[in-house]
Amino acid sequence: METMIQIKDVTKTFVGKDNTVEALKGIDLEIHKGEIYGIIGMSGAGKSTLVRCLNFLERPTSGTVYIEGKDLAALNNSELRNMRTQIAMIFQHFNLLMQRTVIDNICFPMEITKTSKKDAEARARELLSIVGLTEKEKAYPAQLSGGQKQRVAIARALATNPKILLCDEATSALDPTTTKAILTLLKEINVKYGITIVIITHEMSVVQEICSHVAIIDEGTLAETGTVEEVFQRPRSKAAKKLVFQGERDQYEEMKGKRCIRIVFTSNSSFEPVIANMVLACNTPVNILLADTRDIGGVAHGQMILQLPEDEGIAEKMIQYLKNRKLEVEELDNYVG
C-alpha cells in the first residue's frame, strides 16, 4: 500500500525557562493511504505534539516527517503553506471563526487558496449537504450545538480536497451519541473520498469504533503499533494493557497475590461453552472475575479473567485445557494495573 505519512525518529523538546520537556522521544511511524489511524495515549503522553508535527504546526527538534515522500523540513514557507492545504485538521474545540457565518467559515480555506467566491460558495454548499447542515448555511457558530460545530469544522477541513485529515481529540468535547455520529461521518468520508485520517484520542472506544490501525503513545515513545484487532486481542505493552482494559484497575488491585489468568477469545472459539466444559472436566469451580466481549471491526472478540483454584495441579490442568482449545492464556500474577 502507498505510504502517506512517514515519521522517522522524530523528537520534540520544549525548552522552558526553568525546565525542558521531552514531549517526543524518537517516534517512528508509517501511515498508509486510506487508513484511519488512531494515535492513543493518556493526557500528556505527547499525542497532540505528534499530530502537530505532521503539518509542522510544531517543528520537530530532530527527525524527519515525510508526506507522500516529501520531507516537510525541506519545504520553504510558501511550499509548506501549500502542503498544509492538503493536510486538513479538526480540533477538540472546533476553532471556528465566531464572527463568520457557517458558509463563510467553510469558504475561509478557499479564500486562502484564492478560489473564486462563486466556486467557493458552490463547493461550501456541496460540503454542507455532505455533513448534513444545509439549512444552517447562514447561521453563526454561536447558534450551533457542539456536534453541529464539529460538522462545520469537518466541512471546512474538506473544502480544499485534502489527502489527509488530522483529528485532534475531535470528539472529546462531545457527548457519546454525538461522538458516534461524528465518527460515522468521518468513516463515510474516509470510504467515499479515500482520505487518510489520523485520529488523536485518549478514548479507546473511538479507536475501536472506526480505526483500522492504532499506535499507542506513552511518555513520548510509541509503546505499540499494529492493527486495532491485534492490539485489542494481544496488548503487549503495559501502556496498551492499561488502555485496552480501561476501568479494570480496581479488579486487578483485588486480584493481586492470587493466581489469575486472562483468556482471549478469537472469532473461531467463542461458540463452545469452554469454561463450563473445563469446570466439568476438572471437577473444580473457578471464579469468573471479569467477562467481556466487544465488537471490533465487525468481529466479536472477548476476554475473560479467571481466578484459578489454589491447588497448583488443577490450575495447571486448567491452563493446559484452555491452551489445547487454542485459546490464549496469560498469567496476571504480578500485573499491576
Partner: peptide
C-alpha cells in the same frame, strides 16, 4: 482564541 489562529495556520494561511 489561539486555537482559531492555529486552525488558520493548519489551512495554510499566511
Amino acid at each position: 482564541d489561539h486555537g482559531v489562529i492555529e486552525a488558520a495556520q493548519s489551512m495554510g494561511a499566511g
